[in-house]
Nucleic acid binder design. Sequence first.
RNA 1: CGGGGCGUGGCUCAGCCUGGUAGAGCACCGCGUUUGGGACGCGGGGGUCGUGGGUUCAAAUCCCUCCGCCCCGACCA
Length: 480
Amino acid sequence: MPKDVITPRARDYNQWYLDIVREADMAEVAEVVRGCIVFKPTGWALWELMQRGLDERIKETGHANVQFPLLIPKSFIMKEAEHVAGFAPEVAEVTRAGGEELAEPYVIRPTSETIIGHFYSKWIRSYRDLPLLYNQWCNVMRWELRTRPFLRTAEFIWQEGHTAHATEEDAEAETLKILYDVYADFAEKEMAVPVIRGLKTEKEKFPGALRSYCIEAMMQDGRALQAGTSHNLGQNFARAFDITYTDQSNTVQYCWTTSWGVSTRLIGALIMTHSDDEGLVLPPRLAPIQVVVVPIYKNDEERVRVLEAVGRMTAGWKGRLRFKVDDRDNFTPGFKYNEWELKGVPLRVEVGPRDVDKGSVAVARRDIPGREGKSIVPQEGLTERLLGLLDEIQAGLFQRALAFREAHTAVVSSYEELKQQIERGFAIAYWDGSSEDEKRIQEETRATIRCIPLDQPGTVGTCVYTGRETTRQVVFARAY
RNA sequence: CGGGGCGUGGCUCAGCCUGGUAGAGCACCGCGUUUGGGACGCGGGGGUCGUGGGUUCAAAUCCCUCCGCCCCGACCA
């Protein structure tokens, strides 16, 4: 009988999430530092794999990594009007250092547009210096009023890309390239999380941006999670920080800049997309341990025999599979099965004396819990079988998540339908309202326009709120 | 930041109302028996009761302060 360590999703989805984070040993709430978490080895190993997948894509698309200071002069933050208004309430300041009051306080970076803008202004002279394509991996701090592990923490780790271009078209192309080729590609191929690529409304866009694009994912409670954003900053920051270049005809022009980021929030998205009441479920491509081997024996003689067989079996795995042999002898096999299921390991191989005699092993799939996910297979060709199964699981998780999203998405044609649909998932509606209309809907329903999908059907319909004719459809949902 | 709940061995909690020797289960340590879906017996260790102050002969318990966590709301990657 399973112990009651994870609250079922149906009973309390929030508690379920916190239970998974704790029981899978990914992170611990730092309680001595408000709103912060400690990444434990399992959680950090997962993040390292995610970082690798993102970093590869960032570099493949022509960007180089750099690193800017953690502290930003307070006056920098004040330079771009919308930006100040957006971030002022949540910045932490450093006012003393070296035992003395500072002449000008620093803020702990909530994001780095401003300090990077300052340096871009110094570095960019001519159109030949463009485009400038940099990225940095760093931690940032936003003094959030309500925090949850991974989803919203006061300090979080992310990458922030910052680029400068000669024309609006170039900046726009960059913004979209990141959205499609880096973020959406990573989410769907590596995380197995289907995402909607969309444009943010004026109300939801980044403070200081011209346009914000995003990828939005659906969690298992039907709520939306913004998994990544890419902003075309127009010339707003270029004007505030005097980022200019001389063009081919010797005229000084303002640059067009972009910024884009994804954070450790992605870990929250991963958990809430795939995991079940038994614990964490990880997609094979990001699982720090893809295969765990549990040896079974009753005495020393069997132990030696089984471990020898396991040694032969796993000899060729290095470099092909991330695996672990769980040879702890103070736990029973049954305990280990449950523990590794809780931790989300995609495949488990069980090897006992009977298997050694018959040349077989038992293989259990994490994505299919219980007896149905378990089968007896020959030791011969095991490695290829495991590799094949990992691919199958990866694809299966994506398909399952996609099917879930589709089952919980509906086109609505009236405000009443909208109110009902957002209780269970995404509501797609024609939209021609204003920011004020949007705010009113949020107050009345607690749902917001998550995005205007970039894939539009192009058909004509009537706006769900104003009744006006429009071809634009949007996604309404309650969001994290 | 507003409303609500909570803070007691590592974890989950009882004890608080009605002040008087700090408890249970799980986990941990030792020994033995066990091991194909969360083993069992015997023995053992471990707690300034979140913090600071107050009331009292006496505070986990009553009062005040601060800190943190969880839930709801507003704000947000």
